[in-house]
Structures are given as C-alpha cells and as structure tokens.
Design a protein around this nucleic acid. Structure first.
Lengths: 347, 347
DNA sequence: TCTCCCATAGTAAGCGCTTTCTGCCCCGGG
DNA sequence: CCCGGGGCAGAAAGCGCTTACTATGGGAGA
C-alpha cells in the first residue's frame, strides 16, 4: 500500500539503512549513492513515516506550545513566533490551557506521550503550592525524557533547578515605569484593575505599580491600596466592570491602570459611558502594546513587551540553536509607550 | 528506563495485549482485570508511547491546522476554536503558511508524514492552476491515507471530489450586503481596498461588492471599477497606502471599503491624517468583525463571520463527530454589523 | 608489494504498541 | 451428561524506522 523505506531501498539498490542515512544525513554516504537514493525517493514519492521514525529514534519532531488561548493576540503573537522559528523541521503543537493548571498538566502529559522534542510554556503560572509541585514533577519528567522545557513569560523559580530554561518578562519593571509615568504627570489617585489574584504576571505587574507608588509616598496603607485595586480576568469585560467598581469606590480617581490592553480598553469603554473624557477627566493605561492599542481612541499608553523576539528566542533555546542565558534565565525588558490616553490631570 | 506496556502488564499479571485493550477500550475486558490494570498504570505512572501507538495503529492523534498566521486574530480565533474542540484526545498542530502555496504544500507533507488524523486548512486558496493541481494531489494523498481534510473559509471546488469536507464563508454575500448598506445610505463613489489579487477570499468579497454596485447601476465599466479598486495584503498598512492612493485617484470618494478590519483601520488612519472626518467626510467599512473593531473610533461598520462556530464545526467534521453537510460543503452566513464608521454622505 | 585503515554499505536487532488469531473456561441447551 | 458457543485473555506477528555492529574494498604508508 504505502511506500516504505524498504521500497525506496529496493529501487535504489541499497539497504534500508543507507536510505535512512541519506534522509537523516548524519552518516557519510557516497555522493553517487546519495543521488541514486534521492532519485528513488522522488520517483516513488516517498514520505517518511513520522511515528515509526519517532519510535525508533525515541524523539519526535513536535514542539509543544502551551498558551492560555491562541485567539488572544498576546498568546497568538508568541505562538506564531515560536512556530515560525521552528521552520519546516519541527511542528508546533499548540494547546489552549485557558489558564487552568489542570489542563496545563493534562497537555504536558500528552506532550510527554508524544515524546515532544521541546515544550514552550507561555504565560502566568498559578501560585499555589499543590500546583507548583505537580507542575515541577511533570516538568522534571519531561526533562528526564529529553524534552527541553522553556518557560516564556513565567518565572523560572517554580521549576526544578537546571531542567528548564526561561525567558522572563520585565513585568515588575514595566508596571513600575508605567505608574511612574502617571505620577510624573501629576496623578495621585490611581486605580488599578489587576488580573486574577493568584498568577505571577498579575503579581509582578501589581508589585511594580505599588513600588512606584511607594517610592513617591503614595501607597497609603494596605486598606487604601486594596480599595484602589480590583481583580478580574485579563479581559475587556473585566476592565469595564472594574472601572465602574473603582469609580464607585473612589470618585476622585484621575487615572486607572489596566493589567493589560484588553482590560484598558474595557476601562475606556466604562469611562466613556460615564461621560468622562480620556485623558481629560481620567487617564488610562494598559500593558503589552498589542497591535490594536495604537488604533484605539485615544491611542493607548501602555508598556511594550517584545513578544515576538522573546518567543523567537524561546524557540531557539528550545531547539538548542542558541546558547542558554546565564543561570538558564533571561529577562526581556519592558518599554513604556506613552500615547494619547494619559495626560496631566485637570488642575 | 521508561515504563512500558510490558511493565504494566507484568505488574498487573496480564498480557500486554490486555493492557492495550484496557487503555484503548475497544475490546471487552472483565471489570476485575480492568481495575487491576488501571491500578498498575497508576502505580507505575505509566504514560503510553504516542509514536509507538501511532505506528502500530497507523494513525496518530494529531490534527493539523493550516493558517496564514496565528498571530492574526482572524486565524487565531479559528485555530483556537479548532484546538478547543479537539479536547484532550487530539493535539492541534498549527502551521503558519504566510499565505504561501509552497509552504502550505510543505506543511501538508509534514502532516502526511505524521499520519495526522485530520487537517483543517483555513483561509484563502491561491487561484493558479499549478497550485490547484499540486494542492489537489496532496489532499488526495492525505485522504488516501485516512486523513480527513476539512477546508475552512475556502471553496471546496479546488479539491478532488468527495475526499474533502468544507465549511465555506459567505464572503460574496457579505461583500454585497456591506456595499448595499453604503448605497442605501446614499454613497455613489465607493473605493475598495482589496486583498491580494489571486485569492479566493479577495475575489469573492470583491465580487459581492461589485454585484451590489451593478444591481444599482453604479458599476461603470471595467476601467472605472479598476480605478476605484486597489489590491494589497490584508494588513493595516495596505489599507493606509490604499486609501491614500484611492483618494489621489478619486478625490470625490465618499466611502471606502476595506477587505478586512485591519485594512479598514489603516484606511481610517490615512483619512484622519488627511484631515477627513469619519464618517462625516468619508465612510469606512471593514470585514470580519474582529474583537478590536468595536473598540476602534469610530466603531467599525463591518461584516461578521461566525468564525468560532464555523471553526468548531470544521473540527467536529474533521473528527467525524458530526454528520457532513450535503455535498460535503456547508456555508456559514455573513451578517452586516452597522456601526459608527458609516453614515450618509454630506449633501 | 603487503598491511592497515578509513570510508562506505549491509545486517539485524530492536523501539513499544496494536491486533489477528487462538485457546481456555464455563454456561446453557439438548 | 455432552456439546456448542460466548466471553475473555494470551501469543505472536508485525508496524516502518534507526543504529549499533560487522563487512568490504581500495588507497596510503612501509
């Protein structure tokens, strides 16, 4: 039925081993033989059997990419960059975890089952001990299997020492810069619509925000900070609801920061609905600088993360095409992008 | 080293065959035996070897998803929906073709090599005979291999009869509705920034547009139509450049239609830069109704395609979980979404 | 001219699973 | 009491490839 290695071998009048060697190219084969084999491959329209090859070689050419949801451009951009970096040697298996630790574990098991060559895990980690342990175990198992695990936008700390590489995001730094920008414009009462409470990204961004406040003596006590902060998913709706809630708690707000751009857009929508001008009455800022942020009105002030470059780097690390950073972890910088949604508060 | 079926079998004091049967569940196994096996699996932390299983069973649990670029939300949404629909039985291999026929063929070959269970090919097809033939051949090969091929947003016509299922988009219909909307508002000189010239989606949307014009006696001759149409990629920049070009050719335009939302946003940017008000001076419309379109200012009039539902359907068809539509093809409707970027032209 | 060795090619033993074919045992019917 | 058959489990033959290990031939060095 299907053409196999043996068929090609027969046609080229060599052994199967030789054909295999020509195709994988990791063993010397005389030029004449090689051309003969290649011709046979061509004539028979031979396509190698991936599973058979993976079984024999004990590794596949699949690379897992775990994301919250590829439909979200934040993850879509990273997934795309990883995939593109793989070229046509490796295939990217993308898995939507929806941010659920269980599903993350499930997919890691499936990738283990596939004997994936590498796995890139993007986005926040959930910060609970049980999950951390389960995750570490699974990652250890993967590593033991020869699968290179690379964390992208997630702290390496949660993983077993040495088994993992990480490209981390300057979330804390970015959060700090953003709030400093607001403070330097003259804002004193700044609301914050944060992400889900138990995630690393949420925590880091929020810590940066609070560090900036504290540095300017604006923090207030914990109660005060809590009053100006609401948590919710990284969605537009969360920004919308959060802004309404914050306005309710503290009508004197002059600025609201969103945990990401989608949240910021939701904040804008809520403010507009309340008849407030942006940035005249209230300034708004986001995080990530996704493509649509520049086209929003007003154009969103935000923090740019070089997602594409970082993801490409993660992919290269995953494939062992690039030297690992010192300590196995690497930090990509966050850059403030000041646009029209922030301005000095009204006097 | 690694735990294998045989290890589990030994521990459960059954044969490997029995373990395999318990795990795949397609053969009667006595309840007592089953529990014993499951216990052994658990105790040994056994993870089945995917490649070995795929080799023996001659099919893998991979499903290919071909997209132009997952970073583009249009494709990201579809890829996400397909992936989610697969559940945790099958894995989605997503491939960025960048719209290139060669890369599309390359990835189809890679998926053939993996013995993929199914392949979902999204987006436009390039309309050249050589490509059509090559593509048909590859698809035929896949089908012969037992891989179900489903076209999503691409006409089934290009594929070999019967070997393929298709979920098509109402591009022509949507294009027609959109332009009819503009005409009914009073527009007579309507520019069109189309997609790349040789793609099915581009052609269908443009045909719909022109059908609407013709139905109202507005088409003019071919030269006239050509003068009001520019082609370019489906990008924001293309919209920006295209709008400038159109304005140059025909300063009296009162409306410009973009081939998709990103293009429309580019058109908006160009118009704004020219000091034109939207929709006061010029109306703008897009296509696809991606999430960001509602947040643009003014909110974009566009055509909604139920991408998520369509993609989920495609995935179900791919897995054989849903009855195929009559004739193997199915058409999802396009719906006009009139928002603030279109209005009656100035008198 | 004779060895020795390197460059190639072949042999064959798996990789870990699925599945067909058998076989066993126990039940019900004759 | 015997026979037939159904329900389960096992044996074993691959699935198509990779990769030690082995074999061979001819050129280089002595």
């Amino acid at each position: 039925m299907a053409v196999t290695l043996a068929d090609v071998a027969a046609r080229a009048r060599v052994s199967a081993a030789t054909v295999s060697r020509v195709l994988s190219g990791n063993y010397p084969v005389a030029e004449a033989t090689r051309t003969r084999v290649l011709a046979a491959v061509d004539e028979l329209d031979y396509v190698i059997n991936g599973p058979a090859s993976a079984l024999a070689a004990a590794t596949s050419d699949l690379v897992g990419v775990l994301v919250n949801d590829v439909a979200d451009p934040f993850f879509g951009i990273m997934a795309s960059a990883v995939q593109s970096e793989l070229g046509s040697e490796k295939l990217a298996v993308v898995c939507n975890t929806g941010g659920s630790p269980e599903r993350e574990l499930t997919y890691l098991t499936l990738l283990l089952r596939q004997r994936a060559a590498a796995v890139v895990i993007t986005g926040s980690a959930v910060e609970t001990p049980e999950y951390a342990a389960a995750s570490a175990a699974k990652v250890g198992r993967l590593a033991a299997n020869g699968t290179q695990v690379v964390l992208l936008g997630r702290p390496a700390s949660a993983a077993p020492e040495g088994s993992v590489l990480a490209v981390e995001f300057g979330n804390r730094e970015g959060g700090r810069r953003l709030t400093e920008h607001l403070i330097s414009l003259g804002h004193r009462r700044i609301g914050y619509v944060a992400g889900p409470a138990d995630r690393t990204t949420t925590r880091h961004r929020l810590e940066g925000h609070r560090a900036a406040l504290a540095a300017h003596g604006l923090g207030g006590d914990a109660g005060e900070l809590g009053r100006l902060t609401v948590h919710g998913p990284y969605t537009r709706k969360s920004g919308y609801d959060g802004a309404l809630e914050l306005l309710d708690r503290e009508p004197g707000l002059t600025a609201v920061v969103g945990s990401n751009d989608a949240v910021a857009l939701g904040i804008c929508a809520a403010l507009r609905e309340k008849g407030l001008d942006i940035p005249g009455d209230v300034s708004v800022a986001g995080f990530d600088d996704l493509p649509f942020s520049a086209d929003a009105t007003p154009a969103l002030t935000t923090v740019r993360l070089p997602l594409q470059e970082a993801a490409a780097r993660a992919a290269r690390l995953a494939l062992g095409r690039e030297e690992s950073p010192a300590g196995g972890r690497d930090m990509v910088p966050a850059e403030l992008v000041a646009r029209a949604s922030t301005a000095a508060p009204r006097a």
